[in-house]
């Protein structure tokens, strides 16, 4: 942003241009305003980055070094042993096969949950945008209002439903739960996107004789890939980071990574190995972090869409 002083300086410079030197006006890089602005931003950035730095540094140290040294100091002797241990041999209760089991459980939960929830929600959104039937909007409003109900209110009835069907404690059950609770926001996302697409497109396809599924698969789907990417980002991070549903709807051998991580770090038995704990913590955070750094602006769009629930 340009302040008033520099604006007038600009016109002055332009007046002198005829005779004086050409080229852009030199800028005061170290103005008081810039020092304050960038100073504050850098201090805040350091504050936000510090926990990540401490996590990485701690995970690369041996336990003796942690006991003696400072959490902020870089490792004197870099060791990857904590990482190996966190992945392969860290104990939760009686199992000592590390976080790898939780990782694969999380993969087996996240992949089908993301696919199923997006498939259901995109078709829902499409039906709401283009094939409205009587009462459809009522269900949609209930769905959106339902997004505000605390999960704790619905946890137990779902336990009963899953138990009646016979899938309580299985990964299938958890996948269904994730699809249910992802539905409000995803349906809203897709409905709004499909509504914003030109109506003529849909009409032309209908005139050509395409039906409900034909239009969805051959026109809507290929034309709305960006919103699908946003939905995938939203769901992968959301489902990977879930703890509550994982702990309620799975058994110890099918626990997702977050639950297993918490059990490893907060187990009361044995000597605390802070380096292993931090390595395990980074490993769990790695998937959403990678998604975040790769997706960049799309992630921002996803959370903005995810956040605006009302």
């Amino acid at each position: 942003m340009v302040d008033v002083a520099s604006l007038s300086a600009g016109t002055e410079a332009r007046r002198r241009d005829a005779a004086g030197p050409s080229g852009p006006r030199p800028r005061h890089v170290l103005s008081r305003r810039n020092i304050f602005l960038y100073g504050t931003l850098i201090v805040m950035a350091v504050y936000y980055l510090l926990p990540l730095y401490v996590m990485i540094v701690t995970s690369l140290k041996g336990m003796p070094e942690i006991r003696l040294g400072n959490i902020f100091s870089p490792p004197v002797e870099i060791t990857f042993e904590p990482w190996v241990k966190a992945w392969a041999t860290a104990c939760t209760g009686l199992n000592c096969d590390g976080l790898s089991r939780g990782f694969w459980n999380s993969v087996r939960i996240t992949v089908p949950s993301v696919l199923l929830s997006i498939a259901i929600a995109s078709v829902n959104g499409y039906a709401l945008a283009n094939w409205r039937f009587k009462g459809a909007d009522t269900f949609f409003v209930i769905l959106i209002v339902g997004a505000f109900i605390p999960y704790q209110v619905m946890i137990y009835p779902i336990v009963i439903i899953l138990r009646e069907i016979g899938i309580y404690g299985t990964l299938t059950g958890l996948v269904i739960v994730h699809s249910i609770f992802g539905m409000p926001i995803l349906t809203l996302l897709f409905r709004n996107y499909f509504t914003s697409m030109p109506e003529e497109l849909f009409r032309a396809a209908r005139v050509d004789g395409a039906g409900f599924w034909g239009i969805y698969l051959r026109i809507m789907l290929p034309m709305s890939l960006p919103i699908f990417v946003v939905a995938i980002i939203l769901q992968v991070t959301g489902i990977w980071n879930d703890f509550l549903f994982g702990v309620v709807y799975t058994r110890p051998d099918t626990y997702p990574m977050t639950v297993q991580l918490n059990n490893i770090v907060n187990s009361v038995q044995g000597v605390k190995e802070y380096n292993v704990n931090m390595a395990a913590t980074i490993l769990t955070g790695l998937v959403p972090l990678i998604v975040y750094f790769i997706s960049g602006k799309l992630f921002v769009r996803g959370i903005a869409a995810g956040a605006v629930k009302g």
Binding site: L41, M44, L49, L52, N241, Y274, N277, T284, G285, L289
Partner: peptide
């Protein structure tokens, strides 16, 4: 760059957040 730095914790789960701050 700044926005990426300020937003990255939001990609992490509360479990990871809680454990890091427990350590700090």
């Amino acid at each position: 760059t700044f926005r990426t730095i300020f937003l990255y914790p939001f990609a992490l789960s509360f479990i990871v957040t809680g454990l890091v701050w427990q350590w700090l």
